[in-house]
Design a binder for these strands. Structure first.
Lengths: 201, 201
DNA sequence: AGCATTTTTCGACTGTTAGTCGAAAAAATA
DNA sequence: TATTTTTTCGACTAACAGTCGAAAAATGCT
C-alpha cells in the first residue's frame, strides 16, 4: 500500500504538468503513460477515467492555492490588499505555465472552466471572512456578502483571465469592486498600480 | 448550386436540434448523418470538421437572436426595459431546449462557452447604444460604456446561466446593474418582479 | 524458508470517434 | 449527346478512451 500511493502521486504530477503545458484535450492517456514509462493497465489501476485524473489534478492545484490564500488571510496587511492578494493567489496559470503562458485560454475550455468553478467554491468562504473583517473596520459596508464575493470573483476571472488590461477595463473593475463592497471611492485604487507594475515584467 | 445550399441548411438544422437537445459532445457525426439519412462523405462535403458545424450552428442561433434584440432596440419602451429585454432575448437555451432545459449547463461546457463569447461580441454594441440613449435621457450616468456593458453581460450570464435566483442573488444583481450604469436606486428594481413572475411558470 | 494472498503491472484487445479518399451517380452545361 | 461540374457514397484509417485476464511483484503467515 506504499508503492501505490507514490505511483499515483507521480502520475498526478506528470498529468498536472502535461495538462498545464499542452492542455487537457491535447494530452492523451497514451502520452501520460509513455512519459511515465508504464502500461495502459497500470494507469487505469489508479484512475477510473481520464476525467477523474483531471479532477484530482485540479483538486491538487486548488489545495495548494487555498493554502497560500490562507496565509494571506492571516497576514498583517490592510483588508483591501488581502482581498486582492487572495484573488490573485487563487489565479490559475501565470507562474504555472512556465513559458507558453497563454495555453490556458485559447482551446482548453473544459479544464479552465472546471478550475474556475472549483476556485469559486473555495474562494467564497475565504473572501467572505475578509469582507466581514472589512465591514468590522468600517472600510466596507454591504449585505449579501457571499453573493457579492461571488460576483467579485466572476468579474475578476473575466477581467484577468481574458487579459483585459486596458485603462478603461481596469477603471471599471476598480469602480465595481468598490461599489460592490460599499467601499469609499479610492479604496481599491491601488489595484491599478499593481497591475501596471505587474504588466511591465 | 441550389441543391447544395438546401442540403447544408438541412444539416445545420439537424445539427442544431441535436446539439441543443443532447449536447455537442454527446452528438457524433454518425448520429447526425444517420438522422439526415446521408453518408459520411456527404457530411464532409459540406463541413470541414465537426467543430466548424458547431461554429455555423452558433452563428445561426446568434443571428436569429440578434435580430430579435434589434427589434427591442427600436421599440418604444423605457430604456431600462430595453436593456433587460435585449439581454434576455440573447439568452440561449430556455425556449430552445424543449423539455430537458438543463442540458446546457452540466456537461456541455465547450458549446456553452462558445455561445457565451459570441453573444458577448454581438451584444456589446447593441447594449452600448441603449446605454447611450439612457445617458441622453439622464437615466444613466457613466463613462467606459463598452467595458461596463461587457461587465453587465458577464454578471448576467453568471447569475442567469447558473440559475442563481435566490433573493440575495437578485438583490445584488439589481444593485450592481444600477451602480454599474450610474442609475438611481430603484431604476432596475422591476427586474425582481420579472424574474419572480417568470420563475413561477 | 515455503506457500498463499493481495497488490501492482502488463499489453493485447475492443469499441467509438473524427476525418479521408477515390470512385460512382446525378445534375448542369455545351 | 458528350463533357464537365456538383453531389453522394461507404469502406477505410488513425487516434483515442477504456477493458480484461493473466503474469509478476510484494506482502503476510506458519
Amino acid at each position: 500500500m506504499k508503492k501505490g500511493e507514490r505511483r499515483k502521486q507521480e502520475l498526478l504530477q506528470i498529468a498536472y504538468r502535461m495538462f498545464i503545458s499542452r492542455g487537457y484535450e491535447n494530452t492523451s492517456v497514451d502520452d501520460i503513460i509513455e512519459e511515465a514509462g508504464i502500461a495502459k493497465g497500470t494507469y487505469y489501476y489508479y484512475f477510473e477515467t481520464k476525467e477523474q485524473t483531471l479532477e484530482e489534478v485540479i483538486r491538487m492545484m486548488i489545495d495548494r492555492e487555498v493554502e497560500a490564500a490562507r496565509q494571506i488571510l492571516q497576514a498583517e496587511i490592510p483588508v483591501p490588499q488581502k482581498i486582492v492578494g487572495i484573488i490573485s493567489s487563487l489565479r490559475p496559470t501565470q507562474e504555472e505555465t512556465p513559458i507558453e503562458g497563454a495555453l490556458m485560454q485559447p482551446e482548453n475550455i473544459v479544464m479552465h472552466e472546471k478550475i474556475r468553478r472549483k476556485i469559486m467554491e473555495a474562494a467564497v468562504p475565504l473572501l467572505s471572512e475578509v469582507v466581514q473583517e472589512g465591514i468590522a473596520q468600517g472600510i466596507f459596508s454591504c449585505d449579501c456578502i457571499a453573493e457579492r464575493v461571488r460576483m467579485l470573483l466572476v468579474i475578476s476571472s473575466d477581467t484577468f483571465d481574458e487579459g483585459l488590461f486596458t485603462e478603461p477595463d481596469i477603471t471599471v473593475f476598480i469602480d465595481m469592486t468598490e461599489k460592490l463592497l460599499g467601499a469609499q471611492h479610492g479604496t481599491m485604487g491601488f489595484i491599478r498600480d499593481l497591475i501596471r507594475s505587474g504588466a511591465e515584467r
